[in-house]
C-alpha cells in the first residue's frame, strides 16, 4: 500500500498533455477506471512512478458513428457502451461481453481501453473486438497511428503500444457488418467472475450460408486468438450440426491452453469447442 500513498498523480485535460506527461515521467502509467491498475498496484505487481489520469479528457469520451465507422473513445465507460443504441444494434457481441465484465460497479468505472491495454488473455472484450475487425487508434510523440487489434496483443500484459503512447479510440471500420455477432464465456460463479474460456463470433449470412465468418477465443493461448482455419472452412457453408462439429474441432486444434488454478488445459480445450458452436448459433440467430 505504500506505493499508493507516494505515487505521483497527474490529471490531464488533453491527449497532447498526456503524451507530454508520459514523455517526461519515466515509468509513468495511464490510468482510466483503475479497476485493473489499482488492483495490480495494491498487489505490488505494478509499480508506476506516476499515474497519468486521462479518464476526464473530453476528446476521449463518447461514441461517434460517422462515415459508417464506429469510434469508441478510449475513456468511454463500459456502461455507456453497452447502453448505446448504435452499439447494441451494430455490435451485439460487444454488448454481451460488456454485460459480463465485472458487475455494475465495475462497468461504471471500467473502460474498453483499459480492458484492451491490460492485455489479459481472458479479457472480456477482446474476442468481440477481434471478430469486429476493430482497430486501435494510438497517439504518441510522433502523432496518431492505427493498429489492427489482432496485432495489438503480444502476450499476457504486453501490447504494441510504446510507453509514451496512449490508446485514444477503438474503431470499428466501415463495412464491418457486426449485427450477427455474439459472445459467451464459461465461468464458475454466475455473479462476477473471470472467463475460464471465452469466445466470440460474427457471421454474415446470405441465403442461409455463411458469407463471411470471424471466430475468436480467449483464455486458451497467451493472447486472445482468431481461429482462421475455422473461419475459412465456414465460408459458403450452412451452420449444420456437422459443420458446427467440424468448426468446434478446428477451434480446439487452434488452442494452446494451460492448466492453472481456474481450469485444466483439457477442460479449456473442450470448452473452446462448446463455446464456438454456441456463439456461432447465437450470432446467426441475431439481426
Amino acid at each position: 500500500m505504500t506505493e499508493l500513498n507516494t505515487v505521483e498523480y497527474i490529471a490531464v485535460k488533453s491527449v497532447a498533455e498526456a503524451v507530454t506527461a508520459l514523455q517526461s515521467h519515466k515509468g509513468a502509467r495511464v490510468i482510466m477506471g483503475g479497476t485493473d491498475l489499482m488492483v495490480g498496484m495494491r498487489d505490488g505487481r505494478i509499480r508506476p512512478s506516476c499515474l497519468v489520469d486521462v479518464s476526464r479528457v473530453r476528446e476521449l469520451i463518447g461514441i461517434a458513428n460517422h462515415h459508417g465507422s464506429l469510434r469508441i473513445g478510449a475513456a468511454t465507460k463500459i456502461t455507456d457502451i453497452i447502453e448505446h443504441p448504435v452499439v447494441r444494434q451494430a455490435c451485439p457481441a460487444l454488448v454481451d461481453a460488456g454485460k459480463l465484465l465485472g458487475g455494475w460497479q465495475i462497468q461504471n468505472m471500467a473502460t474498453l481501453a483499459g480492458n484492451v491495454c491490460n492485455a489479459s488473455p481472458a479479457a472480456e472484450t477482446a474476442g468481440p473486438l477481434l471478430v469486429l475487425d476493430a482497430e486501435v487508434e494510438a497517439c504518441g510523440p510522433s502523432g496518431l497511428r492505427s493498429i489492427p487489434v489482432h496485432q495489438f496483443w503480444l502476450g499476457p500484459g504486453k501490447t504494441a503500444l510504446e510507453p509514451t503512447e496512449i490508446l485514444t479510440a477503438i474503431i470499428i471500420p466501415p463495412g464491418v457488418d457486426g449485427r450477427r455477432s455474439a459472445y459467451q464465456r464459461v465461468h464458475i460463479r454466475h455473479s462476477v467472475d473471470i472467463a475460464l474460456v471465452c469466445s466470440a463470433a460474427r457471421v454474415v449470412l446470405a441465403d442461409g450460408n455463411v458469407q463471411e465468418a470471424r471466430i475468436a477465443l480467449g483464455a486458451v493461448a497467451p493472447t486472445p486468438i482468431r481461429v482462421r482455419e475455422a473461419e475459412s472452412y465456414l465460408q459458403g457453408r450452412a451452420l449444420s450440426e456437422e459443420v458446427l462439429d467440424k468448426v468446434a474441432e478446428l477451434a480446439q486444434a487452434a488452442t494452446q491452453p494451460i492448466t492453472d488454478v481456474r481450469a485444466s488445459a483439457e477442460y479449456r480445450r473442450a470448452m473452446a469447442g462448446v463455446l464456438v458452436r454456441r456463439v456461432l448459433q447465437s450470432a446467426a440467430r441475431r439481426a
Binding site: I188, R189, H190, S191, V192, D193, R262
Partner: peptide
C-alpha cells in the same frame, strides 16, 4: 479464485 456466491448464484 476463491468464489463466494453472489446474488446470481
Amino acid at each position: 479464485d476463491y468464489r463466494i456466491p453472489g446474488f446470481q448464484d
